[in-house]
Simulated assay, not measured.
Amino acid sequence: MTEWYEDSFGEDYLLVYKHRDVQGAYEEVHKMINWLKLEPQARVLDLCCGMGRHSLALADAGFRVTGIDLSDVLLREARQMDTENRVEWIHADMRNLPLQGGFDAVVNLFTSFGYFREDGEQLKVLQGIRHMLKPGGSYIIDFMNTAYVTRHLVPHSKRETEGHRIEEFRQIKDGFVQKEIHITDSGSSQKPRIHEERVKLYTREQLSDMLQEAGLVVDQVHGGYDEEQYDEQDSPRMIFVGHRSVE
């Protein structure tokens, strides 16, 4: 059976999420650099790099960057934007990273976590992050804030873009936030193309425990890139910043 993340990050993903801007990535990277306290020329792994917005912003900031993603389509877009070949792009599953490690930092951004049904699979990702980091190396895991998402979930939305109608249906079910995306070409009588997204919900305490089990220390949690402090009810995001334990 094909898992949702093997299907959903294709050509239609580019259409649905085309509004994500490059300038925002540069602003977020500036904040990340301060949080991670990175030295010039530090090695950074962008785990689940997607179209490479943050990887390229990190490279522009003077770091040696590797971007990993499972989607050939998104990696194709990343390579096309990387006209000077500044980033090493690698196709891989985040649970099984084909690298030796030794990175100064690993970043996992915009809820590129919680994709799997079992907690044990999520733990493999965190253990992989630890393995990629050199002792004392730092990480960022940028996850959604469960309480905020639960309160502000929009069950249904629709829009038109570039001759396509996009409808999104959202629900929280069995501990996951689920989205079903229907895409129809304008004027077409064909059935819509349907894609699913499903992310497991974790509280701050649950994710903190998983990080500790994986050998990752939590230094601080932010509520967004413009929020220094995390508030369980009001913060839109839950951004963990920490480091690999030395032992």
Rank of each mutant, 00 (worst) to 15 (best):
T2I: 11
T2P: 10
W4I: 05
Y5S: 07
Y5M: 06
F9H: 02
Y13V: 00
Y13M: 05
Y13E: 05
L15Q: 10
V16M: 09
Q23C: 01
Q23H: 08
E28A: 07
V29N: 00
H30L: 09
W35N: 06
L36G: 03
K37A: 08
L38F: 13
L38H: 11
E39I: 10
V44L: 07
D46E: 12
L47I: 13
R53F: 05
A57N: 02
A57C: 05
D60E: 15
G62E: 11
G62F: 10
G67C: 13
L75V: 09
Q80R: 15
D82H: 02
R86C: 10
V87L: 03
W89R: 02
W89A: 00
W89L: 05
I90C: 01
D93G: 06
M94H: 03
M94R: 07
P98T: 10
L99I: 05
L109G: 00
L109F: 07
T111E: 08
Y115C: 00
Y115V: 01
E121C: 03
K124H: 09
Q127R: 15
G128H: 09
M132D: 05
I141K: 00
A147Y: 13
V149Y: 12
L153E: 12
E160F: 14
T161A: 03
H164A: 08
I166F: 05
E167N: 06
Q171K: 13
Q171A: 13
Q171M: 13
I172R: 10
G175E: 05
G175Q: 07
K179P: 00
K179S: 06
H182Q: 04
T184R: 15
D185S: 10
S188K: 09
Q190N: 14
K191L: 13
E196F: 12
E196P: 00
Y202S: 04
Q206I: 04
S208T: 15
D209K: 08
D209P: 00
D209R: 11
L211T: 01
L211D: 00
G215Q: 04
G215R: 02
L216F: 07
V217F: 13
V218Q: 01
V218F: 03
Q220K: 14
Q220Y: 11
V221R: 01
G224I: 01
D226P: 01
E228A: 09
D234S: 15
P236A: 01
R237D: 11
M238D: 08
M238R: 02
G242W: 00
R244S: 15
R244H: 13
V246N: 10
